[in-house]
């Protein structure tokens, strides 16, 4: 069953009198229980799609359906992890998470309990009272993930969540995210992630949608039927990576 249907999504900005098409006829769905990656070159408008789904952007043409109904804006069952973490600098780790719970009208005692639960889940216990400025990039993104999960979404949107982190931290965090999603202890059903890192996409996703450079349109999709945990040195892994790679290359040559 499709949790999310994107139909004929188009987006054109007007800048200095010039029209700038960012998205061109985007169609795809996010199925229940699926980890879907959108892959494409930098600046192709991948993140824009996430911003439309999350309700940050609302000028577009086309349809976004959540469970066959128009996607409410904002949709309380959707949550987001940002590339630049987007933590509030004057709030501690715990307060950052409590903030989004407070915005949902959750009572103080429940807020504390939920915040601590998710802080614990991402491995940040004993850092509740630290400020973002006192944390490393990896730890900041753990807070970002804990915050996104704390509102108990069905769909998690991730906008290049690991691209600001060093290689080891990113690998570590990737595994944790897959585990959290696979364990199915959370209400979380599906993940929609945007990345320009093809290997990361093959490592994480059930299905990969390849987007072209701006204006973004869908070049094709690749399913990744590999058992988890995956190993990037497997032959099958490399084959799929090659497929994605050539699809992106053809998007460049096609231009």
């Amino acid at each position: 069953m499709a949790l999310l249907d994107i139909k004929n999504l188009n987006l054109t900005f007007r800048e200095n009198g010039k029209e700038l098409t960012v998205l061109e006829n985007i169609n795809f769905s996010l199925n229940e229980g699926e980890f879907l990656c959108l892959v494409g070159p930098s600046g192709s408008g991948k993140s824009t799609i996430l911003r439309i789904v999350s309700g940050i952007l609302n000028q577009y043409t086309g349809e976004v359906l959540y469970k066959d109904q128009p996607n409410p804006q904002p949709n309380p069952n959707v949550s987001m992890v940002f590339q630049s973490f987007a933590l509030i600098p004057w709030l501690t780790v715990q307060e950052n998470i409590e903030l989004v719970l407070e915005a949902r009208g959750i009572n103080p005692r429940q807020r504390v309990r939920t915040a601590l639960k998710y802080i614990d889940m991402v491995g940040l216990d004993s850092f509740e009272d630290a400020y973002p400025r006192e944390l490393s990039g990896g730890m900041k993104q753990r807070v970002g993930i804990a915050r996104a999960l704390a509102v108990e979404p069905e769909i998690l949107l991730m906008d290049e969540p690991f691209s600001a982190l060093d290689v080891l931290t990113a690998a570590d965090l990737r595994e944790q995210v897959v585990n959290l999603w696979q364990e199915k202890k959370l209400p979380l059903k599906s993940v929609l992630m945007v990345t320009h890192n093809m290997e990361e996409a093959v490592f994480l996703a059930d299905r990969i949608i390849v987007l072209s450079a701006r204006p973004a349109h869908i070049m094709g999709e690749v399913s990744v039927d590999l058992p988890r945990p995956r190993d990037s040195r497997d032959k099958a892994f490399e084959d799929i990576l090659d497929k994605v790679y050539s699809m992106i290359l053809s998007s460049r040559l096609g231009k």
Binding site: S54, P74, S79, A86, I88, E102, A103
Partner: peptide
Amino acid sequence: REFGEVSKAFNFGPDFTVRRVYLP
């Protein structure tokens, strides 16, 4: 920009945004 995006993505609403984001 990210302050505005967080406020929208987590549905802060105008008063909540003023109180918790703008004022601080």
